[in-house]
């Protein structure tokens, strides 16, 4: 990368603390496992030959789904905890400053940058405002939705006396109408998360190359580096 020669021209900033980075990668892995196994729970692979007692394919698929789901849930709870005790960047995706004019101006500028109207993006230490919007709606609320509906569906199998049934299935299933509707929405939001992944991976790589700050390496090392010496736009 020709720009990388200039990339350490300004002091790097420690943005993503270790818990955030670990959560990011564990969460990414959990979501991939959840999407693949979830898809196969909805549309199972071709039938298995032999005796039923010799096979446990759906059992393993469901186990992987539930195990990954608990990692996903506990990871998210840990991430919420870190939003309280971590640095200001750890809070960013949870609280988009929707009443700030500056924030929306940033969103529009980012939109212009993506429509090839703006000549250059603004420079951010944290996420750019557009990223905050997408992460907040698709990832944070998508995750909350999947955790609630997922536990409701799990509670159906765990049974009436389980805490999953008591705290989730009992009110979520009637809320949606019936079990099948909960399945359908759980399935649809899986696709929302898949769309998020497609956009997230593309944008992260593109920004890493074309924006004025580092992206991919930051989520590995935690340090944000910059490609020019001008002031950052998010005031940190």
């Amino acid at each position: 990368m020709s720009t990388s020669t200039k990339s350490h021209s300004e002091p790097a900033v420690y943005v993503y603390e270790a818990p955030v980075r670990i959560w990011h990668w564990i969460n990414a892995l959990a979501i991939i496992v959840l999407c693949i196994t979830g898809y196969f729970i909805g549309s199972p692979p071709p039938t298995m030959p032999g005796e039923a007692s010799d096979n446990f394919l759906m059992g393993y698929i469901r186990f992987a789904h539930f195990a990954a789901a608990y990692i996903f849930i506990i990871g998210f709870l840990g991430r919420i905890y870190w939003a309280f005790v971590g640095n200001s960047h750890a809070r960013q995706i949870f609280f988009p400053p929707i009443f700030s004019g500056e924030f929306w101006d940033g969103v529009f500028h980012e939109a212009k940058w993506y429509l090839f109207i703006a000549k250059e993006p603004r420079k951010y230490t944290g996420h750019n405002p557009m990223a905050v919007i997408f992460m907040h709606i698709m990832l944070v609320w998508g995750t909350i939705f999947m955790i609630f509906t997922g536990l409701a569906l799990y509670g159906e199998g765990a049974g009436y006396d389980s805490w999953q049934y008591t705290y989730f299935s009992g009110w979520i299933i009637p809320l949606f109408g019936q079990s099948q509707d909960v399945h359908t929405f759980h399935h649809l939001v899986m696709w929302v998360l898949i769309l998020f992944i497609i956009m997230h991976v593309y944008v992260a790589i593109r920004e890493d190359i074309m924006s004025r700050q580092s992206l991919v390496s930051t989520m590995i090392s935690g340090w944000r580096t910059f490609k020019d010496k001008r002031d950052v736009d998010d005031g940190h």
Binding site: P45, T47, F56, M58
Partner: peptide, 10 residues
């Protein structure tokens, strides 16, 4: 048991 084994009518 056939469900858990992944054995389905296609």
């Amino acid at each position: 048991p056939h469900f858990d084994a992944g054995q389905f009518v296609e």
